[in-house]
C-alpha cells in the first residue's frame, strides 16, 4: 500500500473512531438522563408502569427499580469502556424494548405518559414523536453494535 493510501486509511479510521465516540456519548447521555430521575424517585416511575397494561402487578416494582439500573450500567459501560461489548448489546436491547412498549401503547390507543425520563420532564401523552425518537436511538445503538465487528473490543 502506498504512503498516500495509508494516510487516507488512517484519516478515515480517525474519523470513524471520532464518530463512534460521539455516538457513545450521545447514547450514554440519553441513558443517564433516563436512569437518574427514575432511580431518584422509583415510586413515581412505578405508578406509571401499570398504564402500559402489560406488566403483572407483582412485576411492576421490580421493573421500576431494575430497568433504570440497567440503563445506568449500560451508560457506564459505554462511557468507561469496561464490559463495552455487553454494554452496547444491553443498550440495543433496552432501546428495542422501549420502542416496542411505546409502539404497543400507541397501537392500542392507550393515552399514557411513557415515563421515559421519570418526572424530569413534563408529563405528556405518548405520541408518534416519542416513537420516532426511540427508533432513532435504536438506530444509533445498532450502529455501535455493527462497529463491534470492525475492530477488537476496547
Amino acid at each position: 500500500m502506498s504512503q498516500v493510501q495509508e494516510d487516507m486509511s488512517d484519516q478515515a479510521s480517525k474519523w470513524r473512531r471520532g464518530g463512534i465516540w460521539a455516538l457513545r456519548l450521545v447514547v450514554a447521555g440519553v441513558l443517564l438522563a433516563a436512569a437518574a430521575p427514575k432511580l431518584a424517585d422509583p415510586v413515581a416511575f412505578a405508578a406509571k408502569l401499570p398504564n402500559y397494561r402489560l406488566f403483572p402487578d407483582f412485576l411492576v416494582n421490580v421493573v421500576a427499580t431494575t430497568a433504570p439500573m440497567l440503563e445506568l450500567l449500560a451508560a457506564l459501560a459505554l462511557l468507561s469502556g469496561r464490559l463495552y461489548r455487553g454494554g452496547v448489546w444491553l443498550a440495543v436491547g433496552l432501546m428495542a424494548i422501549f420502542t416496542v412498549l411505546i409502539g404497543s401503547a400507541l397501537a392500542r390507543g392507550i393515552d399514557l405518559d411513557c415515563g421515559c425520563f421519570g418526572n424530569a420532564v413534563q408529563a405528556e401523552p405518548v405520541g408518534a414523536l416519542d416513537l420516532v425518537r426511540n427508533v432513532v436511538l435504536l438506530g444509533l445503538t445498532l450502529v455501535l453494535a455493527l462497529d463491534l465487528g470492525r475492530e477488537p473490543a476496547r
Binding site: L39, P42, A46, F58, N61, T65, T66, G87
Partner: peptide, 27 residues
C-alpha cells in the same frame, strides 16, 4: 458481558427495591 451486566442490574435493582420501604415487593 451482556449476561454479567444483566445479572448486575437485576441484583442492584432488587437491592434498591429492598431498601425502599415505600415500594413494596408486591404492590
Amino acid at each position: 458481558e451482556l449476561l454479567a451486566l444483566l445479572a448486575a442490574g437485576l441484583v442492584l435493582g432488587l437491592v434498591h427495591l429492598a431498601l425502599r420501604p415505600d415500594l413494596p415487593w408486591v404492590p
